[in-house]
Structures are given as structure tokens and as C-alpha cells.
């Protein structure tokens, strides 16, 4: 194979331009956040407290609705979270801290998954391994972006995973011990799917909760990426359940022609993205 250095350089430059364009909303958002912080003066303590109280009610309600939390016997966690969540930070900071905590949990989950032979090992499906690796890296970038926004607003960065979901993820991972590779892969995909959907739904909802235009732009630049993760995981899950892991491949066109009909639509089941599984806005807030 021969490589044209000039063509390669042009491609690299184009790639960098596109990447710069892609992260521009984030940088613009951070710049605006700094300006907002400088011009807004002291936080409205009463408003922040009211936001905290409102979302504590939402937190309690979520324990009866979310699949993951329900599996964890979530009511026992309410007291812990109530003391962990901060009522003094601004609404936007609390929302951003929760988002960062979800990203941190996703990173930890993919990192653990990649240690499993059927996800990150030599016997794993190459597409699944690449997806898990790339997706973990994207969640790292998302966490960094949320924490940068928090710092710009004068808040405390969130380095920990979402406290409500950690026990559930741990339980799910422990449950993978001793299972077959096929069952294990399906379990990991199911867990990742639920986390990704919670992230996507949370950020869709957050666009209506945060007050800053720049924060709306930040969430809008990430929510679709998480939704894409959901779409891919739904397709992978369907193929695993159908006993056709060999079709999880990017060797078009032979594979595409062999895909079952449902593979064309299973990745986007709803015309409008729902928010019923969104995490309470201050669930991952730092005290």
C-alpha cells in the first residue's frame, strides 16, 4: 500500500478542523460561563435551596420508577443522598455536577467491562471492543467538559460516580461472575444500555433546567452522542439476543444484506426522546 503524504496531511487537517468545530460549542459555552459568573454576583441562596428541595422530591419519586434504582432497593439511599447533595450551589452547578457523576460512572463501567475477556479480550467481537473503548474515551471528555463548566462557575468539580447508581452497577458486575461469554456480553450490553439511556434522558431534560444559554449548548452537544450509544447498544443487544453475534460487524455490504429486518429500526424506538428515566437534577451534586 502506498501513502500520499500530501493527501494524508490534508485529511489530518480536515479532521482537526472538524474536531475543532465539534468542540467549539463547548469552548464557547465555557467562555460564556466565565462571563456569566463574573456578572451574576452572589448566588441566590433561596432559589438554590428551593431547587434542591424540588429535586429531592424528584429523587424520591425516581426510586419507584427507574429500573436500576428499583433493583437496588433505592429507598435506603435517599438519606445518604440527601446529605450528599448540596443546596448551596447554583442550580446550574448542581445539574452539571450530576452530569459529571453520571459520566464518571460510565467511564468506570466501561473500564471494568473492558477487563472482561468477552468485551476487551482476544476472543471479544472487535466492533464491540472498539465501541467500548471509543465510548469510554468520549465519556472521559464529557466529564472533563462538565467539570470545566463547573470550575468556570466557581463550583466544586465532581470526580466521583453517581452515588445512587454505584451499588447497582457493582451488583450487576458481580452478577457476571461465572456466566458464559454469551450471557456475560448480553449482561454488559444491558447495563451499558441502561446507563447510556439515563445519561441521554438526563441531558435532554437538563436543557430545560439550566438557565445559561451556554450550558444548554453544552448539554445539547452531548445528549445526541449518548443517544447514539443507545442506538448502537440496542442494535447489538438485538443481534446478541437473536444469536447472531457474527452480524455485529462493519464489513459492508455482505453483513448489511444479512441483517434481520428489525436491525434497521431497533436503534430508534421512539420518535421523541423520553425523559422518564432521567436522573434527578441534583442527585450527583457535591456538598
Amino acid at each position: 500500500m502506498t501513502v500520499d503524504p500530501r493527501a494524508l496531511a490534508e485529511l489530518l487537517e480536515e479532521s482537526q478542523d472538524l474536531q475543532a468545530d465539534a468542540v467549539r460549542p463547548t469552548h464557547a459555552a465555557l467562555d460564556e460561563l466565565v462571563e456569566l459568573r463574573h456578572s451574576s454576583g452572589a448566588d441566590d441562596v433561596a432559589a438554590n435551596h428551593a431547587f434542591h428541595e424540588e429535586h429531592q422530591r424528584g429523587l424520591r419519586a425516581s426510586f419507584t420508577g427507574a429500573t436500576l434504582l428499583g433493583a437496588a432497593g433505592g429507598m435506603a439511599l435517599v438519606g445518604v443522598l440527601a446529605s450528599a447533595a448540596g443546596a448551596s450551589s447554583s442550580k446550574d452547578i448542581q445539574v452539571l455536577q450530576t452530569a459529571a457523576s453520571i459520566e464518571n460512572l460510565a467511564v468506570a463501567t466501561y473500564k471494568t467491562a473492558l477487563t472482561l475477556p468477552y468485551i476487551g479480550g482476544a476472543t471479544a467481537n472487535g466492533v464491540v471492543t472498539k465501541f467500548a473503548t471509543v465510548t469510554m474515551g468520549q465519556h472521559v471528555q464529557h466529564a472533563d467538559a462538565f467539570n470545566s463548566a463547573i470550575t468556570s462557575l466557581g463550583g466544586k468539580t465532581q470526580a466521583k460516580p453517581d452515588p445512587a447508581f454505584v451499588p447497582v452497577v457493582n451488583k450487576a458486575v458481580n452478577g457476571l461472575a461465572g456466566v458464559t461469554a454469551a450471557a456475560g456480553a448480553l449482561g454488559v450490553v444491558g447495563l451499558a444500555l441502561e446507563l447510556e439511556n439515563i445519561a441521554a434522558e438526563t441531558y435532554v431534560k437538563d436543557t430545560t433546567l439550566v438557565s445559561s444559554t451556554s450550558n444548554k449548548a453544552l448539554f445539547a452537544s452531548i445528549m445526541g452522542i449518548e443517544a447514539q450509544h443507545v442506538a448502537v447498544l440496542l442494535a447489538v443487544q438485538a443481534l446478541l439476543k437473536a444469536g447472531a453475534p457474527q452480524l455485529i460487524s462493519l464489513t459492508e455490504p455482505a453483513t448489511v444484506e444479512a441483517l434481520p429486518t428489525v436491525a434497521g429500526s431497533v436503534g430508534f424506538p421512539n420518535a421523541f426522546y423520553q425523559t422518564s428515566s432521567a436522573a434527578p437534577a441534583n442527585q450527583g451534586a457535591v456538598k
Binding site: 485529511l11 489530518l12 480536515e14 479532521s15 472538524l18 474536531q19 465539534a22 468542540v23 460549542p25 463547548t26 472498539k130 465501541f131 471509543v134 474515551g137 468520549q138 471528555q141 464529557h142 467538559a145 445539547a220 452537544s221 452531548i222 445526541g224 452522542i225 447514539q228 450509544h229 442506538a231 448502537v232 442494535a235 462493519l250 464489513t251 459492508e252 455490504p253 453483513t255 448489511v256
Partner: peptide, 17 residues
């Protein structure tokens, strides 16, 4: 037959749309 996510024209996945 391409990586299933937003990407650059060179095919590199991007974390921010």
C-alpha cells in the same frame, strides 16, 4: 459499514456533536 457514531470526514469518532 462505518463506525456507528458521529465522526469526522476521516472517520474519527467525535465526543461532541
Amino acid at each position: 459499514g462505518m463506525y456507528p457514531g458521529s465522526q469526522t470526514t476521516a472517520g474519527s469518532p467525535i465526543a461532541f456533536s
